[in-house]
Design a protein around this nucleic acid. Structure first.
Lengths: 359, 359
DNA sequence: GCGCACAACGTAAACGTTTTCATGCAGCCT
DNA sequence: AGGCTGCATGAAAACGTTTACGTTGTGCGC
């Protein structure tokens, strides 16, 4: 770090301008001198000072990722997808992964100002349209993940919760289940609301004439456990239970086990997310897989596009389809599958990234 | 972003110097004018340009995290721990989480030059002492995670694999097991080697006179499965199996299940890591917990210290203790535990962060 | 043989800060 | 009353780049 472009220039007996030109490969310099400069630079271990460069270039080659304090697979896979793709675009990743509430997020956002060329924001309660309006500089390219913003200043990329839930209900219905219950997620969660909507829509279309039982949960295992017990307590037991995420499904499973209700023999059970745990519980849990790393990759692509061609695809809405993966917990289908080492073949529901241009 | 310190100065009818002083709270400015400047800055939504600032300050208020392309809990928890703690130090986090091999890592490292005040590096095959010697600028504060470097230019923070394994063997021995087998991790993995060493040491000390069976794995579930079958194929079956990580233990479990061997009835089984899956398999897996987020936090603290007091604790070696958590898979102890909602009380083995100053 | 175009290279400005130094002004002490 | 101390403020340098512009020199066409 202590070696600057001037040192290289002096050592190579050229001006700093030539060093810059040579190292950036913009031409305007003889192959011979370029070679010499490169050698000197390498020998001196010169590496350009990023801050100085971006001061004049107005490009930081860095993108920010702003997300709430969540742990687990979702977070790591998302970051991984983003980072991997960022690399291919020659971008670095500045993460702020642990804010709690809007104030934290606002601070993080402010701190990122001038350090990033663009930003990926994972929505969370408090970080919504209004929040962004006041805290985001207009000019900053932004991609919103899982946001219910229709089309504002930013591009929006969503998981197709609706289609995923719908497809899973279709599968359950095809197995002959009619009394299908649903365990919801938290009310203020975007995914949770979409999944519930998908479930309701699917039921009225695919299993008409029934009014499905819906009990509320909050995405936690404990709430799933409670929901499971509640579902068992009714006078007529559901044939299938659809939990809005896998952790709650696991909670249900526990409740059923304790009550001596066999899964899938007495009751079918499915979840949503395909967390790693899903395939290791007994019986392995059928669920809807969301390809998180791919979500991150797509977000990054969108953002890179926004950065390189300002205003290109801003204010567009995209969705990423889900796969339904059938294991044992919903019965029927492939039957008992003793060895979970073999590959599952998830059936892709809707993976087209549809673009609803607007603005 | 397009509003600079000059705009604020003009609007507040002072010089840029005063704006800088006022906003940085360094004094040398009347409370009245400071107030005025702050108001103007707020009204204009002025936020200082990080690059320009760090150009002169030589501080980026950013630290880098360099890690291999690993997914899952370890990655996310580590990042989380680091980020959370970085925040308290007023630092941001630049991650490069997906390199494969030394070349990638070198490129990532070079790209971070001048963008970070310090760096946390998670060792991986290829990223070792020699690698760092050639790719790390001397002056850059560095914390190495899980490195076998004794004490070089950087601070080193390790998981106490040895003590963790040792304690778990002690527990198994206390349950009466004498024929304890071990499934190793990959040969080039630091953790794996330490765990094996801990196992061997514990066995010679605690169960003397036996020569334990040791079969090799590579940390993957599949290799654990194979190892499990191999262990069963011998003429005398082990009483307990210690897998060097949880995924392999899960593989073993599957092998045992297929062979009709009951866990823990016929054979005890333990792992290492306490990944989330561990508590959801049947039977829930006893294991050694490494507090990953705490590892990240400690690394960050170490690094912040290095940054603020150059040369303070460089070239020191620290270790973070593990907890052993007893579930059902090793039998004995707490007996069958029907409800896994209740809290487990891991017994902490050795959590003192011992510092072996050197240099 | 002369000028002209073009390529190679150097000079210097610019980016947005922080910080050192100089300047002016007020108040205090003697 | 005069000089000195100290404080608020402004001017300008510095940080390490990129880049617009100017300068030089070379080769080429006529």
């Amino acid at each position: 770090m202590t070696v600057t472009i001037k040192d290289v220039a002096r050592e190579a007996k050229v001006s700093v301008a030539s060093v810059s030109r040579a190292l950036n490969g913009v031409g305007g310099v003889t192959p011979a001198t370029e070679q010499r400069i490169r050698e000197v630079a390498a020998r001196l271990r010169y590496v350009p000072h990023g801050a100085a460069r971006s001061l004049i270039t107005k490009r930081t080659h860095t993108v920010g990722a702003l997300m709430p304090d969540l742990h687990g697979e979702f977070f790591s896979e998302l970051i991984r997808g983003i980072d991997l793709e960022a690399r291919t675009h020659g971008l670095h990743l500045l993460v702020s992964s642990s804010h709690n509430g809007a104030d934290d997020a606002a601070a993080a956002l402010r701190a990122m100002q001038g350090r990033v060329d663009g930003i990926v924001i994972l929505s969370s309660p408090g970080v919504d349209a209004a929040f962004l309006k006041t805290n985001l500089p207009e000019s900053l390219p932004t991609v919103l993940l899982n946001s219910d913003m229709k089309a504002g200043a930013a591009a929006v990329l969503n998981i197709d919760n609706f289609a995923g839930t719908y497809a899973m209900v279709r599968h359950l219905a095809s197995l002959g289940h009619r009394r299908i219950a649903f365990v919801t997620g938290p009310k203020n969660n975007f995914d949770a609301r979409q999944r519930e909507a998908g479930f309701r829509a699917a039921m009225t279309r695919l299993v008409p004439g029934t009014s499905p039982r819906i009990v509320s949960g909050d995405f936690s295992e404990a709430s799933g456990y409670l929901a499971g017990r509640e579902l068992l307590s009714g006078k007529v037991r559901p044939q299938a239970v659809f939990a809005a995420n896998d952790m709650m499904a696991v909670g249900c499973l526990q409740a059923f086990k304790e009550a001596g209700i066999a899964v899938p023999g007495d009751i079918a059970l499915v979840g949503f997310d395909d967390i790693p745990i899903a395939r290791y519980v007994t019986p392995p849990l059928s669920t809807v897989r969301v390809r998180i790393a791919e979500l991150g990759k797509n977000a990054m692509d969108l953002l890179a596009d926004l950065i390189n061609r300002p205003g290109s695809s801003a204010a567009s809405v995209h969705t990423l389809g889900c796969d339904i993966v059938v294991r044992e917990s919903c019965g029927g289908a492939s039957g008992r599958n003793l060895n979970h080492h073999n590959q599952e073949n998830p059936s892709r529901v809707e993976s087209t990234t549809k673009l609803e241009g607007s603005s």
